[in-house]
């Protein structure tokens, strides 16, 4: 049975110095910004989702709405990063939505968009699980960033549409547990709540053994 190493990824924010005043300028910047800019504006929003305005799902969409592009704001909101395994695919889809919008892309926006990049740092927490019991103990010891890393960022890291925990459960023959974990909805619950849910799912299985 392979072991599971709990890791984490924290980040801080770097302003790229790129500021867009029109959708055209936004689009132009979006084509070449570092992919961690896309990570910042879409993924950080999931991290903070439950503490942010609820009208739209990411900062790109918010900016569109702030400037009166409500249809575009809705179209960008429906992009669910959890369904992607590559930041480049997200970039491509956003560009396509904007190019196909039929809007006059050169209208001056009243509020500019500031492109910010996530400066990411992965760390090993030195917590290792070898079975369900040590896994649940590990889960209890990790923080929000670690949870986010294994549930969300892992999809990008491995380019696979599954979270790290479920992948490990599958590898140790716990396919049902893997499915249950994958079903926990990050949009519906805060990371604190998600942590509690994961612990109870694994404990239920553990005590049923």
């Amino acid at each position: 049975m392979g072991e599971f190493r709990f890791k984490s990824e924290v980040w801080t924010s770097e302003y790229t110095g790129i500021k867009a005043n029109t959708i055209h300028a936004f689009l132009k910047a979006l084509r070449h910004v570092h992919e961690d800019v896309i990570y910042y504006h879409l993924y950080r929003n999931i991290f903070e989702f439950h503490y942010l305005p609820l009208d739209y799902a990411n900062s790109f969409a918010y900016w569109m709405a702030e400037n009166g592009y409500y249809v575009l704001a809705e179209k960008l909101s429906v992009i669910d990063p959890l369904q992607y395994t590559s930041l480049e695919d997200i970039r491509h889809d956003i560009i396509r939505i904007l190019e196909d919008s039929g809007e006059d892309l050169d209208v001056l926006c009243s509020k500019p968009f500031y492109f910010i990049r996530a400066v990411r740092m992965a760390v090993d927490l030195n917590i290792v699980a070898k079975d369900l019991e040590s896994f649940v103990n590990g889960l209890k010891k990790i923080g929000w960033h670690s949870l986010f890393y294994h549930l969300v960022t892992a999809r990008l890291k491995l380019g696979k549409p599954i979270n790290d925990f479920s992948r490990w459960f599958e590898s140790i023959g716990e396919a049902e547990l893997a499915r249950e974990i994958e079903k926990v909805n990050l949009w519906a619950h805060t990371l604190r709540e998600v942590k509690g849910q994961l612990i109870s799912i694994v404990e239920r299985k553990l005590y049923a053994h």
């Binding site: 984490s8 924290v10 760390v123 030195n126 010891k141 990790i142 923080g143 929000w144 960033h145």
Partner: peptide
Amino acid sequence: YIGEGNIEEIKAVAE
């Protein structure tokens, strides 16, 4: 206030 797990993460970043 923020739970033990988040403290462990900070310690790991400071390591």
